[in-house]
């Protein structure tokens, strides 16, 4: 379990390294997909299967479709793929610096955190996170209202921002 968890954590950092090292947006989106998938794995190993499910749905179902659409909008003449020189150099620099930092903190790491809360009742029907999310219907109802109101507000915001006046590159003829 410990070994697999280390691999997953390493995968999260690697995904973010790919996003941060300034490739073309396609590859950055790919890195984000990898990071989101690995994040789901981490959450499952910690016993948060419901939160993992939500993350998986939101990231891989919703956000990446939108990002693919926008990557098509922002087409590039020559790509900075993961193997190209500047991107590879940046990735190397980031990887080495994260490794050095991890080495610096290595003595202070302790293993108690590997024991997760839900580890000993894998077969239980109720999981803690699902029960916690269900709390949002009654005691946390105000937060639900705020979040719903913000999503509605975002709809207005987006509509106002992309509303076409007759100027600019894209316009109705």
């Amino acid at each position: 379990m410990s070994f697999f968890m280390s691999l997953l954590l390493l995968g999260l950092v690697l995904g973010l390294i790919v996003v941060a090292s300034n490739p073309s947006p396609y590859f950055a989106a790919l890195g984000l997909v990898v990071a989101a998938g690995v994040g789901c794995g981490i959450l499952v190993w910690h016993g948060g299967s419901f939160l993992c499910f939500i993350l998986f749905l939101i990231y891989l179902g919703g956000m990446l479709v939108v990002f693919a659409y926008c990557a098509a909008l922002a087409a590039d003449s020559h790509w900075e793929s993961l193997g190209s020189q500047s991107v590879a150099a940046t990735m190397l620099v980031y990887g080495v610096s994260v490794g050095v930092l991890a080495g610096g903190f290595y003595g202070g790491w302790y293993e108690s955190s590997w024991l997760t809360v839900e580890e000993f009742h894998e077969l239980a029907v109720h999981r803690g996170d699902a029960a916690g999310v269900a709390l949002m219907y009654m005691p946390g109802g105000k937060m639900l209202m705020i979040a719903a109101w913000t999503l509605l507000l975002t709809l207005f915001v987006v509509m106002e921002l992309v509303r076409g006046k007759n100027r600019g590159a894209l316009r109705s003829i």
């Binding site: 705020i146 913000t150 507000l153 975002t154 207005f156 915001v157 106002e160 921002l161 509303r163 600019g168």
Partner: peptide, 19 residues
């Protein structure tokens, strides 16, 4: 943090209103 985010979201179309 949520309050700050709502604040930022709400000011965006007001800033961009003339396009």
């Amino acid at each position: 943090w949520m309050g700050l985010e709502i604040n930022t979201l709400a000011i965006l179309p007001l800033m961009a209103q003339h396009h």
